[in-house]
Write a protein that binds this DNA or RNA. Structure first.
Length: 273
DNA sequence: CTGTTAACCTGAGTGC
DNA sequence: TGCACTCAGGTTAACA
């Protein structure tokens, strides 16, 4: 998936096409996503107007009417949300369609089915999926001191810590690796041993990396495409992710690869200590 | 409680 | 061509 910048890119791509349009019909072809699309999904959305788009972490939110009811879309690892303005033949894994007024079709496509499309009635209050989420990286709540306090006593590797959604949302494998490089911190360092200064640099770099990636439309990767099918340009700005064995862009030392929590982690052994 | 691992799925790529 | 194998952007349930 899409990490935060990719989701934000999709949101920006989708918004102008859906804003103010009514959902005429919903077609669920495959309800077995990460969490099943409920039976009453079509009834929940049909006839309602999309009045806003939002994002919380990696969850894309579509506001329905002015009731506070929303639609949650999560892209998992391989999900896409396509805006179609002309008929397109159905492809494998086109699991769900929202047919909007004006001949616009929102199509959810997800080969691995790790994503989700869920109704979120206002009456439900805070959605369970978002209840334990940490702060948005761009919010005032996310800063060095916050990271410092949260990491005290933690023995887990700082990269795993950073990818924990209850600490901060939006940093997945790519951007965690990139933030750590820019902050000069080795991914294996125990989170609890970071200094206040480490945490300040890390928080700053998380924000900087995500900001830059959003500005570039995300990173081009196998399964990611923006809502219009285009892909992002952040790939060329990566320092470590996917660059195992290649020279560090700062010091030319070969980038190393290790496995952390079943996930590939690239780092520069010289720039990151 | 904390921290790590396996599992959910399919497709792409690699090596034989 | 085909088969066996590994790996992939996320999240969480189950374990130690």
């Amino acid at each position: 998936m899409p990490e935060l910048p990719e989701v934000e890119t999709v949101r920006r791509g989708v918004e102008p096409h859906v804003l103010g349009r009514r959902i005429r019909r919903a077609v669920v072809r495959e309800p077995r996503l990460r969490w099943p699309v409920p039976e009453d999904f079509a009834r929940f959305v049909e006839g309602r107007r999309i009045t806003g788009t939002d994002r919380r972490g990696k969850y894309l939110l579509l506001a329905l009417d002015t009731t506070g009811d929303r639609l949650i879309v999560h892209l998992g690892m391989s999900g896409r949300l396509l805006v179609l303005t002309a008929p397109e033949p159905l492809r494998k894994h086109d699991h769900l369609d929202l047919e909007l007024e004006g001949g616009v079709l929102l199509r959810y496509h997800d080969p691995r089915r790790f994503g989700a499309v869920l109704p979120w009635p206002a009456a439900q209050g805070l959605h369970p999926l978002m209840a334990t989420m940490g702060p948005e990286p761009f919010s005032a709540d996310f800063h060095g001191d916050y990271l410092f306090e949260r990491s005290r006593g933690k023995t887990t590797a700082v990269k795993s810590f950073l990818m924990d959604g209850s600490v901060v949302v939006g940093a997945g494998n790519i951007y965690a690796a990139e933030s750590l490089f820019r902050a000069g911190i080795r991914p294996t360092r125990p989170a609890g041993k970071l200094s206040r200064g480490d945490c300040a640099r890390l928080a700053e770099q998380v924000r900087a990396v995500l900001t830059a990636a959003v500005a570039q439309g995300g990173t081009t990767l196998r399964d990611f495409a923006g809502a219009d099918g285009a892909s992002g340009y952040f790939q060329q700005a990566l320092y470590v992710y996917g660059r195992e064995g290649q020279p560090c862009r700062v010091c030319a030392t070969p980038i190393k690869l290790l496995r952390l929590g079943n996930r590939q982690s690239c780092y520069c052994p010289r720039c990151q200590r």
